[in-house]
Amino acid sequence: MKKVIIGVFVLFLAVPNVINAQVQKEKVLGDTAKYLLLNMNLQKEITDAVDYMYNFDFRKAEVEFNWIKYNFPEHPLGYFLYGISTWWQMMPNLEKESPLGEEFLAHMDTAIAKAEAMIEIDKDNIEANFFLAGSYGFQGRYHSEKKNWGRATNAGRLALKYLERTHGNESFSPEILFGDALFNYYSVWIREEYPLLRPVLFFFPKGDKKLGVEQMKTVATNAFYTRVEAIYFLMRIKAFELNETFDALRWAEYMNEQYPNNPYFHRFYAQMLYTAGQFQDAERVSLEIMSRIKDGKVGYEEMSGRYASFFLADINRKRNEWDKAEAYYLQTIAYSNALELEESGYHIYSLLHLSEYYVQEQRYDEATPMLDKIRDNTKRKEETNKKARELEKEIKKKKR
């Protein structure tokens, strides 16, 4: 935590020097438009900063965000971008407890306070309502990741309140459409996936999943501040909900090319290559990930390693190259244990494939504890549990 605070303090100290070195910026910006979201000169000036952020060069990005805070101290934009920057620092493993969580919430709280001050002057200020909806929306995502359901629900309720005020104003800016897109898709998705929540959602307006996807495509190709966030959701929807693997792969390849140092996009690209059966490329990309973990690159840690090592293990298993496959499966198990993700599919299938191999090689003493772990972490009706019991029976027969 001290390092984070010191880093932020250093950035604040650096702001006057940055501004002195870039006095021409004020001339470029000229008279600020009423709405910063519409200020194209500002967008041009901070394009590199946004790219730095998504490419995990947070220090360079935040120097620029501090410039925004310095020049527009009463506007939520700088604080909102700082919040997103902190969010992406946590993104490689959102389940992991981190002091960055409180820092993220503080940035979004400040953005909310700045936007509320704007609302007091003009209740219908579209831009202020956009930042309120976005800030509360991000806080809701954070609390849902942490399973703080009460806080997540309250943040979501407030996000929807302000989203309703911006609804129908997408002609103002493609940024506005992002909230509508998310609501249209996920309001239906939640009803479908979580039927117990339907009574809670009864009084909420109904969405339209197909429209939500089309809106997200529009944001992904036309927005500036929310473009990458829209692509993130679009990739996940296409990959895991619409089963449009090759479309998801196309987006994943594009994002990996745009932001080659982003560990989330890197591993998502590897996952889509593996899912699409493009094993040679999946192996190459997974090896890149493992190399970056070894080198201690920012954001590359156990979660990325769990994905990459499993893909490498399974690719080598399919080739019947068990020396490599065994080592990578064991690595996947180690990463899963470190992350306390023993019930995850990557962990369970690593245990199962190794157990099958050990039974085949008559290494029963190594297979038995793995089969016990499979049974402990799966339900009896699950296929992996059934296979584990079958292998246990096979071991008993062979030991007689």
Rank of each mutant, 00 (worst) to 15 (best):
F9R: 12
L13T: 01
Q24I: 09
D31G: 06
N41V: 09
N55W: 03
D57N: 15
R59H: 10
E64R: 15
I68Y: 02
G78K: 00
L94P: 08
K96V: 10
K96S: 10
E97G: 08
P99S: 09
P99F: 14
E120M: 07
E120C: 04
G134T: 11
G137A: 11
Y142P: 02
A152Y: 03
R157D: 08
L158C: 00
H167R: 15
P174F: 11
E175N: 05
L177E: 09
E192T: 08
Y194T: 09
L197S: 15
R198K: 12
V200Y: 12
P205F: 12
D208L: 04
V213M: 01
V219D: 03
A239I: 05
W251G: 05
A252G: 08
Y254R: 13
M255P: 03
N261H: 08
F279T: 12
A282V: 01
A282Y: 02
R306C: 15
A308H: 05
F311A: 04
I315L: 00
A327E: 14
Y329Q: 02
Q331E: 15
N337D: 14
N337C: 06
E343H: 10
H347R: 11
L354S: 00
V359R: 00
A367C: 04
K373A: 14
K386Q: 11
K386V: 10
K396Q: 12
